[in-house]
Structures are given as C-alpha cells and as structure tokens.
Design a binder for these strands. Structure first.
Lengths: 249, 249
DNA sequence: CCATTTTTTGCAAGTTCTTGCTGTTTTCAA
DNA sequence: TTGAAAACAGCAAGAACTTGCAAAAAATGG
C-alpha cells in the first residue's frame, strides 16, 4: 500500500468519524504503529488534521461548540461581521442562519438601519430584537437542543414561500473541492432551503475553517456569491477559491 | 476515549447547563474524579470555562437574568410554577405562552419528564431547551421586540392545525366578571388561537393580578379549566371565582 | 542491468504522558 | 467548631511518544 493511499484513507476516516485511534489505523492498514504515527505527523504538519495523544481529530470536531472563549477567534469574527454589515442596505429582506459569527453580525447592525430578517436561530433572533428598526421573523419548528436552531418540515415549508434579497450563512465548513459541508443532516436541509429562498448567498468563515470538510454537503461553491473572511481579499490563503465566480471580501 | 473528546464533552455540558458537577461528569464519562478534575483544570487554564468548588461554570455571554428584581413577586411565581408542574404528566403535548411565571414553570420541569411543548415565546423556548427530554417546537412568526413573543398570522395558522392536551397561559389580567384581558391586540389573537388548540386551559396568575382588567378581552372564565395562584385554594380572596366551573389550585 | 543513493519501514531503548490511587490539606456548610 | 466533601500532591503502572538504527524497498544514474 502506497503512502498516498494510507494518507487518503486516514483523512477519510478522520472526516467520517471526527476522530481516529492510531491503533485502529495500524490494524486496518496492516502497517506498524510507527508508520501510522509518522503518517499522522505529516498530515498534522500539512494541517490536514489535528494530532492528539492516542489518535487524531478533524479540525471541525473541536471547534463546533459555540463560544469557546477563544478571544482570538472572537476578534476574527468581529472583523468578519464588520465587513458583512457593509453589505446590508436599507429596507432589505434577509435570511440569517445561526452560529457565533452571525451573532456578531446581529450585534453590529447599525441602530437606525431598518431591515426585515428571517432566522431559525434563537440566539440570533434574540440579538436582533435589540434593534428597534429590525423586524424579526422567526422561522418556527422543532428546536435542536444544543444549537438552539429550528429544523424540520415547518421551517423548510416557510422558506419555500420566501424570496429574499440575501442569505447570510454563518457556521459551516468550507473547501474549494467539497464545497460547503455540515455534520448535521437536519441543518443541511434548512440551509439548502435558505439558499433556494435567496437571490444572493453570502458565506461567513474564519480562515481556520477554510479547507475543512464534514460528512454532509450543503452546496457547491458555484451557488455562493460572496465569501467573507477576516483575511485581506488578496491573501494567498484564498487562492484556491479564486477559480470560482466568488466575490471575496 | 481520547482526552480531546472528554474536553469537548465537558465544554458542551458546561455551555448547555451553564454549570456542571465534577461527580456527574466523572460518572457519565466513566473516568475517575481525578481525571475530570485535571481536565477541568486544563480547560480553566485555557480560559474555556470557570472552575468552581465542586464543578465548573461557563462564563457565558448569556447571563440573561430576566428576574424583575422583585424577590417577593418572584417567590410567588415559583410557588405557582411548583403547583403547575404537578399538573403535567409523561408524554403530554402542551402549549405554553410567555411571561415570567411561565419561565419559572419551564425551569422547574423535572429533568426526566418527557414532553412536547409548543411555544411562541423566545425566553420560554430557551429555558425549555435545557431539558433534554422535552421536545420544543417554536411557533414562528413576527417577533415583538419587548416581549420576545411571536405574533401574527403564521402563529395563528400553525395553532389552527394543533390539538394539544393542555395550554398554559402565563401573563394576563384576570377578573371574575370581565374574564381574561390583555392590552396587546396581537397577543390576544395568539392566545385565543392557543385556547382553541387545547383540550384544557390552565391560567397562572399571582394574586396581585386578580381583579384587574385591561383593554381587550381574550376569553371568558367559562373557557378556563384550571386557575393556579400562589394562594391556598380555600383562600377567601378566591371566593369570587368559585361560581365558575374552575379548578382552583 | 547493476551499483549507489534515497526513502520507507519496523524495531528497540528510553522518555514522557495519562490515569487511578493514596494520604494529606483545604474548603464549605451546619 | 466540627465533619464531610472537595482539592491537592505524589506515586506507580501502563500506554503512547521519541529517537536512533538497520534492513528492505524504491528511485536514480551510468
């Protein structure tokens, strides 16, 4: 078995299960534990996965809990939010998903900007209600306990009746090849409906989450119109996204 | 189980419940208390959570203490909530409106009681989501800025399709002659739809609000099945409600 | 095709990390 | 103040990691 094949297998396993044990890999690949260890070490250096004591985890795995108190990430998210509110204009009707980045957007909306916002996220709705000139319409349905996010047929049905100016997707994992991915099937359904309901789709992503892949696919990059990161639009890290018809902000 | 996985689990728990006990973590993770202690210590040093004697808490941004400061009123509301949760039984499907009294009910629901709850109140939905065994379905629609309560045709439409076991109305003004009254026309519409959708209607009211009347009428007392106050059911203050076919609790 | 170099792989010795246990000290609440 | 629970420090067994090395495999070059 070639080294490349092993690397690919390891990455697949990591993305599928969010984590792997070196012992399991050694057994299923029929190579010594040392070889696996070296493979994982390389992949770690290539930033393809995260090596931990006893195994490896995918990048997405550790970061999807809400506010991880990481002040560094937080400041990146605020930068993204600042760029995002610049895209908004008076009187627009928009859709917002959940996630901490979208929370920052909700907080940063100018106090006198009047908007109509549809959202299935409890936290975002709560934050938007602080703005007297923003009309907030909650897309009701079954709520997910951890994400505090509405999913299910009711949400999708309501979205099917909408045609809004813009859709702002906060969380999610982004990769130039695999597109936009998620780990929760129900959330995928809602996000796809959101994209269908909007004329333009805007993705917010901290650079750490670029090139990370999850189990299920939301959409291809061709369906996205704008990508907002905390980086300068000319940053080389974004090069792999340039072939697509994307506005980089 | 990898250390990283334990860390993630602990953070999830902390964010979810806002505080956890080391003993509980030790049991659910099947590791010794020392290991959990060490984990929490690391997470504390990483500023991911706050270690306290016996457990850990999140320094969460959601310290929304919607307590109205009035500790006296608060204790009455807790008494009402205690009586109200006694009315609930396993597997029921219920409707809950908003208000601080209903918030207390939401908090006091036993951890292992499984229910399905529909609500148009953001705060109540948020509180209910702390209970793993409660399925929460939000009745989406236009949100009122102060009350954080959904109103409008969408809510009424959704309610028209429901037939639930019980409806718990929190806020409101009550009078033996004028019935249940409100000052917000939109809220009236929703509450009427809620009463129509339920087999039984339960009203929660602190005694201060008895014999008070507002501009618009929600319903007559004849449509109400149970009235819960903080008073003893035999209290003379409730005499004027006895002529009606009401269960006083 | 063969000899040399480079890369890869497995192994062994030694080090570090993890974890549960012990005994002791500290903290908390009655 | 006192007793129980929690936190801490140190220790030991085992697992995981590192390093260096040598054999095997692959690539290179004449």
């Amino acid at each position: 078995m070639l080294k490349e094949e092993r690397h690919k297998y390891i990455l697949d396993q990591v993305h599928l299960h969010h984590r792997v044990l070196l012992n399991d890999l050694s057994e299923s690949l029929n190579v010594s534990i040392d070889t696996v260890r070296r493979d994982v070490k390389e992949l770690h250096q290539d930033k393809k996965l995260k090596k931990v004591h006893g195994g490896a985890t995918s990048f997405g795995f550790m970061t999807f809990s809400k506010d991880d108190g990481n002040i560094y990430l937080q400041s990146k998210k605020i930068q993204i939010a600042e760029k995002t509110v610049d895209l908004l204009s008076e009187g627009q009707v928009i859709l917002m998903s959940g996630g901490t980045t979208n929370m920052e957007v909700a907080k940063l909306i100018p106090k006198k900007l009047s908007l109509t916002v549809f959202t299935p996220s409890l936290h975002v709705a709560m934050a938007l209600l602080e703005h007297k000139d923003v009309e907030v319409i909650f897309l009701g349905g079954k709520l997910l306990h951890e994400a505090k996010f509405a999913v299910g047929g009711t949400v999708v049905n309501m979205l099917a009746q909408l045609r809004v100016d813009m859709c702002i997707l906060g969380t999610g994992y982004l990769d130039p090849v695999y597109g936009l991915t998620e780990f929760d099937w129900e959330v995928i359904q809602v996000k796809q409906a959101m994209i269908r309901a909007a004329k333009k789709t805007v993705i917010l992503s901290v650079s750490d989450k670029l090139h990370s892949v999850q189990k299920y696919k939301t959409c291809d990059l061709t369906e996205v119109h704008t990508l907002v990161t905390e980086l300068d639009p000319k940053d080389p890290l974004l090069d792999s996204f340039r072939p697509y018809d994307l506005k980089l902000v």
